[in-house]
């Protein structure tokens, strides 16, 4: 009913504030990640720790970055695998030693 009335009076139902908010959200993902390179660096180190529990990876060839496609931002990690472990344990201590 209300939608109809709004349309009747020629108002675009996608309010421009929604567009503003969405653009702001995307731009801030990049701003905040770009401003603190430590964030991606710390994330990378944590990723190495977690993944190493399951796989032997090439930590020097590991890349972590943000990719933007139209209206979403994705975290993209390129992790070269050297070897899959035959046995794994979820306890972090054993995994680090292995």
């Amino acid at each position: 009913m209300l939608e109809f009335l709004l349309r009747f009076f020629g108002r675009d139902t996608t309010a421009s504030k929604k567009i503003a908010k969405e653009r702001l959200r995307l731009v801030l993902v990049h701003d905040r990640a770009g401003v603190s390179p430590h964030l991606l660096e710390a994330l990378k180190n944590d990723l190495i720790n977690v993944i190493s529990e399951y796989l032997d990876i090439d930590t020097t060839g590991l890349e972590v970055s943000l990719n933007q496609e139209n209206d979403s931002v994705a975290l993209v990690a390129n992790i070269p695998i050297l070897r899959v472990k035959r046995t794994f344990k979820t306890s972090p201590e054993t995994a680090v030693k292995a």
Binding site: R11, S16, K17, K18, A20, K21
Partner: peptide, 10 residues
């Protein structure tokens, strides 16, 4: 009110 400006909560 018209949805053409970000509000306080946003």
């Amino acid at each position: 009110r018209k949805g053409d400006m970000m509000d306080i909560e946003d």
